[in-house]
C-alpha cells in the first residue's frame, strides 16, 4: 500500500474506546481512505448516532455532528441535500443502525442518496456495557440474555441489497488496508453505500473475537466474486458462522442516485450559485426594462 499522509485527518484527542477495540481499525481505515481520495477536512461531514462507535466524529478532523441514537442517516441526508458537493459519511454501530434506526436505513437505501454509511458492527451494545443487539448471534450470552440469545440476527447485507442500496460491502477492522480500499470505492460510488465493518468488542463480546473472525473471514475478490451480479451477491450475503466474506458484495452502477434525480441537488444544491453569462444577464435585465 502506498503510504498516504493521514495527519490532516488526525486530532489531538485520544479515543475513549477500550484498548483493542475494532473501532480503532475503522478510524485508521477511514483516515487512510480520505487521504487517498485527497480530500480536505473542510469537504467532509461525518454524522454519527449514539454508541461507542458513534463517538467517531470526536476523533477525526472533519466537520462532525454527534446526533441522536439511530438518527445519523436522516441527519446526514439533510446535510447532503443542502450541500451535495460535500462528502457525507454517516457512522454508528449495529444497535444504532440496525436496531433503533433501521427504518432510516431501509429508506436511505431505497432513496439511493449519495452518502456512505459505515456501521461498526460488534454484535453487542457496548456503551451500555453489553446487551443483546440486533446482530447478536443466536446463543450469545449477554447481560440481557444470560442464558443465551434466542432471537435471530438481522442480516444487514441482505437488507441493504433488498432495500435498494447500490453499493454494499463488508470490511474487517483486522484488515485496515483492505478496508481503506473499500471505503475509497464506497465514497467514489455515486449512490448509497453501506459498509458493514466487523469491529470486534473486546470487552463485552466474548464470542465474536478477532481470533474467531480471523479463522473465518475470506476476501470476496479472492474467489472471483462478481459484485455486479445480484444473485451472487445475495448468495454470498447469506454466509456466516463457518465462513465470513469480506469485500464488495454488490454494486449497481445503473440506478440513478437521488442526487442525480432531484433537480435542485443535480444543479449543485440550494446554495449553489449558477453561472450566468453576460448575455443571460442582459436578457434578464431586459425583461424589466
Amino acid at each position: 500500500m502506498a503510504t498516504v499522509d493521514i495527519k490532516k485527518f488526525q486530532v489531538n484527542l485520544n479515543p475513549t474506546w477500550c484498548p483493542g477495540c475494532g473501532d480503532y481499525g475503522l478510524l485508521r481505515g477511514l483516515q487512510t481512505a480520505l487521504a487517498k481520495l485527497d480530500l480536505d477536512p473542510s469537504e467532509i461531514v461525518i454524522v454519527s448516532g449514539i454508541g461507542c462507535s458513534s463517538n467517531l466524529p470526536h476523533f477525526i478532523k472533519a466537520y462532525g455532528y454527534h446526533s441522536l441514537h439511530g438518527r445519523a442517516l436522516p441527519t446526514a441526508q439533510g446535510v447532503k441535500m443542502v450541500n451535495p458537493r460535500l462528502t457525507v459519511i454517516a457512522a454508528g454501530g449495529d444497535g444504532d443502525g440496525y436496531g433503533i434506526g433501521v427504518g432510516h436505513l431501509v429508506h436511505a437505501c431505497r432513496r439511493n442518496i449519495d452518502i456512505t454509511y459505515i456501521v461498526m458492527d460488534n454484535q453487542i451494545y457496548g456503551l451500555t456495557t453489553g446487551q443483546t443487539s440486533p446482530t447478536s448471534d443466536v446463543g450469545s450470552k449477554t447481560k440481557t440474555s444470560p442464558d443465551g440469545n434466542y432471537e435471530y440476527p438481522l442480516n444487514p447485507i441482505l437488507l441493504a441489497i433488498s432495500s435498494g442500496a447500490t453499493f454494499v460491502a463488508r470490511t474487517f477492522s483486522g484488515e485496515p488496508e483492505h478496508m481503506a480500499d473499500i471505503i475509497v470505492k464506497a465514497i467514489q460510488h455515486k449512490g448509497f453505500a453501506l459498509i458493514d465493518d466487523i469491529s470486534p468488542c473486546v470487552t463485552y463480546n466474548k464470542k465474536n473475537t478477532y481470533q474467531w473472525f480471523k479463522e473465518r473471514v475470506y476476501k470476496l475478490e479472492d474467489i472471483g466474486h462478481d459484485p455486479y451480479d445480484i444473485n451472487q451477491a445475495i448468495q454470498r450475503a447469506t454466509e456466516w458462522e463457518d465462513k465470513i466474506p469480506i469485500g464488495i458484495f454488490y454494486i449497481n452502477p445503473d440506478k440513478p442516485s437521488y442526487d442525480q434525480l432531484d433537480p435542485v441537488i443535480r444543479e449543485g444544491g440550494m446554495f449553489a450559485k449558477p453561472e450566468i453569462t453576460e448575455d443571460e444577464k442582459k436578457e434578464i435585465l431586459n425583461q424589466f426594462l
Binding site: 433503533i100 451500555t128 456495557t129 446487551q131 447481560k143 440481557t144 444470560p146
Partner: peptide, 28 residues
C-alpha cells in the same frame, strides 16, 4: 431497551428471568 443510566434495572431483571426466579416474558 438499554440506555444509560437505566440499563442496570432491566439487566438485573434479565438475570432474574434467566435464573428462573420470575415467570415473566421479557422482550429485548
Amino acid at each position: 431497551y438499554p440506555i444509560t443510566p437505566q440499563t442496570p434495572i432491566v439487566q438485573e431483571f434479565a438475570q432474574f428471568v434467566a435464573d428462573g426466579l420470575v415467570n415473566t416474558e421479557m422482550i429485548q
